[in-house]
């Protein structure tokens, strides 16, 4: 017996309605479930060695540097602050940059904090936290009319020869009205050129810019970000709870201003 069209329509509508109700209920449940504050597993389970083991390449000031008195730097302070917030001791494992990701895989460390840029190619192996620092390029100038790269038309731009700034300058030359390019040997010399008037602005990485501005407080220059290089903390992808614990601690450091204080201490 052939089914009448209205009967089929009613059945289909009923099925669709039922499915929607279930989907809606599921979504509401998921939202509610996520909102419930639950105690995490005991710290001993998350950190079975009883400490936060941090992989770090301490050869890259001001993020980390090794001296006879120990390790110092922005990343070191951040790691110590995270451990304190989590409530466990910290241990830094100093190693070469090449070994950092492998040390996670081999369970030699719990996390890596080492001026580590978020690398999309590694997202299958590691989790990254929220970025704690943007190490991209900035445009530094004491000219109030220069805020962004399009403002550079008709002016002179200083930068380090062969650097990312050099590449960015050439890209912008293809996009906007011409500006004069002034390559120098180092970012510091490029900033010198902008300060003494040989150039109207300098394009450098933010670390060089901030350190330079600290050394020259009388120079009334401002800077604006031009590119992004996000530094973040890496953990193993199969250690979800560990990542969540570290991420939560990092968020606390961001919200209470501790992270900003640490950055200001070093830059």
């Amino acid at each position: 017996m052939a089914a009448s069209p209205w009967r089929v329509t009613v059945i289909a509508l009923a099925a669709a309605l039922t499915a929607w109700v279930w989907i809606l209920a599921g979504a509401l449940f998921a939202l509610r479930w996520n909102a419930i504050e639950r105690p995490g597993p005991p710290i001993k389970e998350v950190f079975p060695y009883g400490e936060l083991r941090i992989g770090i390449d301490a050869s890259y000031p001001p993020f980390a540097v090794a001296t006879s008195d120990g390790l110092f730097g922005l990343d070191v302070d951040l790691g110590a602050a995270l451990a304190e917030r989590i409530g466990i001791p910290v241990r830094f494992v100093n190693m070469g940059f090449d070994g950092l990701y492998d040390s996670l895989r081999a369970d030699q460390v719990d996390i890596v904090i080492s001026a580590l840029r978020v690398d999309p190619a590694r997202l299958g192996d590691v989790h990254y936290t929220t970025s704690y620092f943007n190490a991209g390029l900035v445009l530094v100038s004491d000219n109030a009319l220069i805020e962004t790269m399009p403002d550079m038309s008709g002016y002179a731009l200083a930068y380090e020869f062969g650097s990312d700034a050099d590449i960015q300058a050439k890209r912008w030359l293809r996009r906007i009205q011409p500006f004069a390019t002034r390559p120098y040997e180092t970012p510091g010399i490029a900033l010198d050129a902008a300060r003494v008037g040989e150039a109207d602005a300098a394009l450098t990485d933010i670390v060089s810019a901030r350190l330079y501005l600290r050394q020259h407080p009388d120079w009334g220059a401002h800077y604006t970000p031009i590119t992004d290089e996000w530094y973040a903390i890496a953990s193993r992808i199969d250690k979800w709870i560990l990542w969540e614990t570290v991420e939560r601690a990092l968020q606390m450091l961001i919200q209470d201003g501790t992270l900003e204080t640490i950055i200001d201490r070093w830059l």
Partner: peptide, 11 residues
């Protein structure tokens, strides 16, 4: 690199 402790200047 301008900051790596084991680096030299480009020139």
């Amino acid at each position: 690199n301008p900051r790596w402790t084991k680096a030299v200047r480009p020139s």
